[in-house]
């Protein structure tokens, strides 16, 4: 890990610690929690898109699997929350394997199509067979760890963002390892990577599984924080939102996932003051981002900074 990343991690950790202390508004803490949950999904998706060059249009499905499985296991089967989360991650990575093996053996964007279909299937399943059907279900147990039950917004803020930091450290290590270099190489030239002795399919499948695990972890966090789930939170619209986070933050840098998640989560709240114009402004701002900051916020900021230094 480079100095820049370590410094960024330190700053992030510091901000996380200070934020709830300085700002007392619970509403802002709540937004912070949702931003952190979204960031978990976006980090995984950034690795998948930016490093493995694959697009997933069904990340909300893994998010939903994580949420529903963990909620059902803890609520209806009385399993400890931490065990339910672990099992949910297992289920979602199994689903990822089943989906990825046929889709990734083919060249081209078959994964995008497969995940699009998968997202719809999961959405329909939750709708038809999920507890409570379309109206959803509540009373999901709160997060519980070593006898301590997380109740306050503060608790969840620290829990979620601690997960973000841990996931970020893991991801940065991975990206900076030989595995990360192989991924980057694959983006540069597939045939050269292959003839360098690297199994592309295996690598892509692994990254896809990783991204699904991150997404379902986020889903489980959501379930045990909100304690109420309904299928409407796991639709194609949400998959597209996750995609937007990654694109706006910048796919070539995993910090982009966090930044994108913050923007996409906070923006609708900021625009709420514009009443009926909020959707219009939201669309306009996103369009401007895509038109003028194609590389994404984080890579562009780094480029600008480098240019400024070399002046």
């Amino acid at each position: 890990m480079g100095k820049g990343n370590i410094l960024s991690l330190l700053i992030l950790t510091l901000v996380i610690i200070i934020f709830p202390i300085v700002i007392k508004d619970t509403y802002l803490h709540t937004i912070g929690i949702f931003a952190g949950i979204n960031a978990l999904v976006a980090i995984g998706l950034t690795i998948l898109m930016g490093y493995a060059g694959q697009i997933s249009l069904g990340q909300a499905a893994f998010y939903g699997i994580g949420a529903y499985i963990s909620a059902i296991l803890s609520l209806h089967f009385g399993l400890p929350v931490i065990l339910s989360i672990f099992l949910a991650l297992l289920v979602s990575s199994t689903a990822a394997i089943i989906l990825a093996i046929p889709a990734l053996r083919l060249k081209g964007h078959y994964l995008a199509v497969a995940t699009l279909g998968f997202g719809e299937i999961i959405h329909i399943i939750l709708h038809e067979w999920g507890p409570g059907g379309p109206s959803g279900f509540g009373d999901i147990p709160k997060m519980n760890l070593f006898g301590y039950t997380f109740t306050s917004t503060n608790d969840y803020f620290y829990l979620v963002w601690m997960c973000v930091v841990v996931i970020m450290i893991f991801s940065l290590n991975l990206i900076n390892s030989m595995t990360g270099k192989a991924l980057q190489a694959m983006h540069g030239s597939e045939i050269a990577t292959q003839t360098a002795g690297i199994n592309l399919t295996k690598l892509k499948i692994k990254v896809f599984i990783l991204s699904s695990i991150y997404a379902s972890l986020a889903g489980a966090m959501y379930a045990h924080y909100v304690t109420f789930l309904s299928p409407s939170s796991f639709s194609l619209f949400h998959s597209v939102l996750f995609l937007m986070m990654v694109v706006i933050g910048g796919i070539s840098n995993i910090w982009g996932g966090i930044v994108g998640a913050l923007i996409i989560t906070i923006l609708p709240e900021v625009l709420r003051g514009f009443k009926e114009f909020d959707i219009l402004l939201y669309g306009l701002i996103l369009t401007l981002f895509l038109l003028f900051m194609r590389k994404g916020l984080v890579p562009m900021t780094i480029d600008t900074y480098k240019r400024w230094i070399h002046r």
Partner: peptide, 23 residues
């Protein structure tokens, strides 16, 4: 067919991946 966005050293390192794959 080089990895253009990677450094010269990294290009060679990738060539060694097959001998030292880490999970």
């Amino acid at each position: 067919e080089l990895f253009g966005e990677m450094t010269v050293l990294e290009n060679v390192m990738v060539g060694m991946y097959l001998k030292y794959e880490t999970g």
